[in-house]
Amino acid sequence: MINLFLLLVDIGTMYGVFLILSASMELEYGELGIPNFGKVMFFAAGAFAVGALAVRLGTWLAGIQWQGEFKTKSILYSTAVSNYFATHPLQALLVFAVTLVVAAVFGAILGIVASYPAIRLREDYLAITLIAAGELFRIFGRNYDPFIGGTMGVGVPDILAWMPPGTKEAGYIALSLSFAAASWLILYRLSTSPFGRALRAIRDEELAAATLGKDIVKYRMKVLALGSAMAAVAGVIYAYYMGSVLADDFNPLKTFLVVLMVVLGGSGNPYGTLVGVAVYIFLDRTLALLKHYIILPFDINYAAMLFFGVILLLVLMYRPEGIIPERPLLTIRAKFCRTKEGKLEKRLCK
């Protein structure tokens, strides 16, 4: 029974994390047409910020004297800080809030930096630039020990340690899903507003949009800042939920999975992300379950990777619009409806 509960916690929390990532990718790629293949870098920005700050802030608040190397002792001290948080919920929430804000700002700044090449480069050059930047960021995290513990990783204190036993896990689900809901609502609201309309106009015909007054540089900057801040928030939640941050976890495969979810669900339609993430998690968990029942002469994780690669190719080939295709969205659709003759009538629809 407890296993089923933990499984649900894991699914729920990861759904939230991936929904935030997909919502940010949908905003950038689905709405504005910038395929952000550096997504994992912004995700890592959030997680690394937590890795670098949470345990340090925690020990400082708890008044614990740090002895020894950061690399070897961070796990130990994060446990000590967790114990402190168990009786000091306010301090725990303070650490969470501070790391969240720092991560979001860090992500947004990185996004603005990334918008500089995004304005000027064709998409494939941009993609390799962002992938490489993300890889260098990962390599830095992996090799510079004082940052996030290098190859050992870093411990992250449990900010929900003060919750009664058994409810803590539900707390993480709630945390993850509430941030996911907020991210998705931001996406939905923007998508179905004049702002989203301008984004899709730029995506469809850049020159015509510029001629009609859209400052394309500014839009790209704003969207990449917002999208990257969102991805960083996903990183924060992920780091706290996992209880540690390991640089090598943030490899380009994560970006690929987010692209898969957005394209599979239907890029250009906010509802697509809800479905895309769900389908991915369902498939991923099913494959994970199969591991226990099937014995293969090779690692089934590779089969899963192959499977997801092929799925994306099949979607691109046979249903490029995804499960839920894009459709023109009216900002205030309710006010306008057709009469029987197909003419427009300007009054509230029944």
Binding site: R200, A201, D204, A208, L330
Partner: peptide, 14 residues
């Protein structure tokens, strides 16, 4: 150069 995935009305609103 219409915004091809937008409706006619949306094209004007842009």
């Amino acid at each position: 150069k219409p915004f091809r995935s937008l409706s006619v009305l949306e094209n004007l609103l842009v």
